[in-house]
Amino acid sequence: MTRKTLLSVGFILALGILPPIFYWTGNAFWLDLATRLVILAIAATSLNLILGYGGMVSFGHAAYMGLGAYAVGIPAHHWLYGGLEAWGLATTSGLVQIPLAVAVTAIFALLTGAICLRTRGVYFIMITMAFAQMVYYLIVSIEEYGGDDGLVIDTRSELPGLDLDNPLQLFGLAWVSLVAAILIVRMVINSRFGMVIQGAKGNDERMRTLGFNTYVYRLVAYVISGAMAGYAGALLGNFTTFISPEMMDWSRSGELMFMVILGGVATTLGPVVGATVFIVLEEVLSDLTLYWHLPFGLLLIAVVLFGRGGLIGLLNGRDQ
């Protein structure tokens, strides 16, 4: 193994081992923070698949997390208050909710992606943003699910052999999911499919003259990424147990993008490193001042203006 691989594996292992240790030594708060971090890292990893490797700058990824979370919240809501029994959607079973989250976000990605991917560049950025906002307003308009005020998930997803009310088990599920997400993205990227996606990012015209219908390949990548983010959303709903349209706000999408850029686009571990730095910064800054968005925004501008290649890029630079 190269030094970089060693560092990467070490980092992921530390991310899995340290939080439970904090928990056992009486710092439950750190486990909470780490759970959120790991869930966001899954979403950032999924975003990296299309943004980093595919060159599709999606500014609506938070909507997928939101949809995933509501796919947990809405069945739980009906389980408690009635309705939708006929559809089998009044349930707290994770075996229904989580596949539902993945299916709903995959379908949403397919439908909107089919339109978004007809466009390029700025159009694509703005349209992904607009569709995310559409979901936001849709949820706001549905009073039964709390509208603006959000929805409390009274009962977490019930999974065989797992108790998500136990913070350690919830964290464990999230961490295993993150490792799986990283491996899946790696596999997809290195596959023949992944070569086409990367080729289309670098030179779409060339790929089309070789015979690849790049639109369809992009769309498939877009759907995979959306469904992964939907899964992360289902975990997030189980973690916070309170979901609201606010989690789909476009600033949330911006934060996910920031994590990917900060960590380093098109790198295996970049999104995870980015999510870690983001969460730690958010924690430290918001502890210092109510106005933590100010230094945070300045930092973001600085990263964009001066920090090409992200943190992983810095690491690589030293390697070579």
Partner: peptide
């Protein structure tokens, strides 16, 4: 903000001005 970013791609425009939103909104808050 904008001028140093003209030569960059749209992703950088979006992120840089996203940072600017955070700064301006918080400044308004202050």
């Amino acid at each position: 903000i904008a001028r140093p970013l003209y030569t960059r791609d749209h992703l950088d425009h979006v992120l840089g001005t996203f940072g600017l939103i955070l700064v301006l909104d918080t400044a308004a808050h202050l």
